[in-house]
């Protein structure tokens, strides 16, 4: 049987490789002792983690305080906080046109609008869908998969699917025209582009949060509902006094996770609209990408400073989650 053959082949290769590494690991064990073999096991991970995550994280702060267009830090002049000063120099903070880095502030405002509507709409839809899937229905597994499926698609694929639907001769315009409406250039109108950026990312991510909420709902003991029924509670009351309080911890996780993701919105929308029309779907991560990598003049210092701002924003959300998680545990 081919499956058996595959298993035999796999276990032969696996053992051969592992035995070979053992030739190295066993002398090390004699030298380190049993408990300190922990260092040996943690080493490969720590090397990659240290070089590609921890060190860059620390370096980012220094980078944000250097200028010029050279990549290597030793070639870059130290400029103190002037990158941050540049980002935060505004005549009027509510009007991006008066800022030195007007695109940064446009990105900030766009991101705020996106986060509010995307997270709000998505969590609400995810909750409704989870509540419905928690009912006694036929084919729950199938419908759960249906709502989850887009989560697996890559951002580029999602963007192309929708770009095709929203284009001038696309499916949506065909539907609108057949209902007597007028053709609209959805991705070339600033308000429509913002709207579709939000809708498309809700479409792509909703299933993930729906699934977490569904797991939370199913963890609520049935006895509590029975008790509520006996006490004469109607559906709304048992939702209000049983479901909501017990679902709260899950809701908070969903809220914070989706906030953190929404702040980092980039790839889907970048492929869908390229940040346009104008700067109407230009978000913070795209600002970092454009400033540091795709502009003719690569302003790494400015990009780093913006990413420090982004990182601090995410840190605030994470701390809120930890804080709420703690109060909830007690």
């Amino acid at each position: 049987m081919p499956k058996n053959m595959f298993n035999t082949l796999f276990s032969t290769v696996y053992s051969a490789i592992m035995e070979t590494v053992g030739l190295l690991a066993e002398p090390i064990q004699r030298w380190l002792g049993t408990q300190r073999m922990g260092y040996f096991f943690v080493l490969p991970n720590m090397l990659i983690f240290g070089v590609f995550i921890l060190f860059p994280m620390l370096l980012n702060f220094y980078y944000a305080m250097t200028g010029g267009t050279q990549l290597f830090p030793q070639d870059r002049p130290f400029v103190g906080l002037s990158n941050f000063e540049r980002l935060f120099t505004c005549g009027d903070f509510l009007n991006p046109n008066t800022c030195v880095e007007d695109r940064f502030w446009r990105a900030v405002f766009n991101t705020i609008v996106f986060v509010v509507f995307q997270v709000g709409g998505m969590v609400l839809l995810a909750l409704i869908t989870a509540l419905i899937l928690n009912r006694k229905i036929v084919g729950r597994g199938f419908f759960r998969s249906v709502f989850f499926y887009p989560v697996l698609l890559s951002p580029v694929v999602v963007a192309l699917i929708w770009k095709w639907i929203l284009q001038r001769d696309g499916l949506l315009n065909a539907l609108i025209v057949s209902l007597g409406g007028e053709r609209t250039l959805f991705l070339l109108n600033s308000n429509w582009a913002t709207f579709w950026a939000i809708v498309v990312s809700i479409w792509a991510q909703m299933g993930f949060y729906m699934l977490i909420l569904l797991a939370g709902l199913q963890a609520i003991p049935k006895e509590l509902y029975e008790a509520a029924d006996i006490d004469g509670a109607n559906s709304w009351q048992s939702f209000q006094y049983v479901t909501m309080p017990l679902l709260m911890p899950t809701m908070l996780v969903v809220l914070v996770l989706s906030l953190i993701r929404a702040v980092q919105v980039f790839d889907q929308i970048f492929v869908l609209t390229g940040g346009g029309p104008g700067t109407s779907t230009f978000y913070m991560v795209q600002y970092i990408y454009v400033t540091g990598f795709s502009n003719q003049i690569q302003q790494f210092g400015l990009a780093s400073a913006a990413s420090v701002v982004l990182g601090l924003t995410l840190l605030v959300f994470t701390l809120i989650q930890l804080r709420l998680g703690r109060t909830n545990a007690y």
Binding site: F52, M57, L71, Y289, F300, A303
Partner: peptide, 9 residues
Amino acid sequence: SVILVPVFL
């Protein structure tokens, strides 16, 4: 996305 520049370095 927060550490793009230094990881690129």
